[in-house]
């Protein structure tokens, strides 16, 4: 738990004139599970998208497993290979079967044989309980199933860090649980996780720290018991009362 894997140092980002990340300082230790929450537009998705360089930063540095982003000539591909990402809209490749979705990146990047890639894909598809759908196309699956495939696809690259960008927000309510259960299972295996989510039950069960963001700033960081039981900042309290009171 003591080893640092992500270190964000004074990170600043603008979209045009909009200052979306303000002086972000964040250290994530190996095996740590973070939950990021905050109102929409607070910069939480942008923050995790910076970690695998889907967004460029204009100030500061981000170090991921010893690779420094935010400098010229930064090795973006090395960082991306260590970092898996799961999107709100799943973003499975619709022209490829479930198995092909999982095999593509390992085949192209690790250059492993087709048989080996298939074994690996089946292993992770079994882990997310969807191996029997391997031959299907994404459109033939439910949202929850698609998201579990997306998790398996990311795991096939053997990432040390997993980023989740509102993984259950696009799902019908009855499918949220199957995806959260999969994520809890993943957390139990000790992988480093950063999840942008408003599933506070998940945060309580899995997170080591919960981070509250508003208007591009980290307002509060605390372990879940403290975060939910005794939030320090007015804005955190206002936010929590909005999402918990109903």
């Amino acid at each position: 738990m003591s080893q640092t894997t992500i270190h964000m140092n004074d990170v600043n980002k603008w979209f045009g004139t909009m200052h979306v990340l303000r002086d972000i300082n964040l250290t994530v230790n190996k095996g740590e599970h973070l939950v990021l929450c905050g109102p929409s537009g607070s910069g939480k998705s942008t923050l995790i998208r910076c970690i695998n360089a889907l967004e460029e930063i204009q100030g500061g540095t981000i170090e991921v497993n010893g690779n420094v982003l935010g400098k010229k000539g930064a090795n973006v591909d090395h960082v991306r290979r260590d970092v898996g990402m799961v999107f709100q809209q799943f973003n499975l490749f619709p022209h490829l079967t479930v198995l092909q979705n999982c095999m593509l990146a390992p085949r192209r990047i690790h250059r492993i044989s087709e048989a080996e890639a298939k074994d690996k894909a089946m292993h992770f598809l079994e882990q997310v309980h969807i191996a029997e759908h391997g031959h299907k196309y994404p459109a033939q699956l439910s949202g929850g199933q698609q998201q579990r495939v997306a998790i398996a696809r990311a795991l096939c690259m053997g990432p040390q860090i997993m980023l989740f960008d509102e993984p259950t927000s696009a799902l019908d309510p009855e499918m949220v649980k199957e995806v959260l259960d999969t994520m809890v299972g993943l957390a139990d295996q000790g992988i480093t996780m950063i999840c942008v989510t408003h599933e506070m039950g998940f945060a309580r069960a899995v997170a080591h720290r919960v981070i509250f963001m508003d208007r591009g700033e980290i307002i509060e960081t605390a372990p879940p018991t403290e975060f939910f039981g005794n939030p320090q900042h007015e804005r955190t309290r206002a936010f929590l009362s909005q999402i918990l009171n109903h």
């Binding site: 695998n52 889907l54 591909d77 991306r80 290979r81 970092v83 898996g84 990402m85 999107f87 809209q89 973003n91 499975l92 490749f93 619709p94 022209h95 593509l104 990146a105 192209r108 990047i109 997306a150 696809r153 990311a154 690259m157």
Partner: peptide, 29 residues
């Protein structure tokens, strides 16, 4: 959709693979 390219980038796929394996087959259709 932009999400397709993003998913491919997030997996670490380079430009050639992103185009050949992900974008062009869908664009062809």
């Amino acid at each position: 959709p932009e999400g397709q390219t993003e998913a491919a980038r997030a997996l670490g796929l380079g430009y050639i693979s992103r185009m050949r394996d992900v974008v062009l087959p869908q664009a062809f259709r």
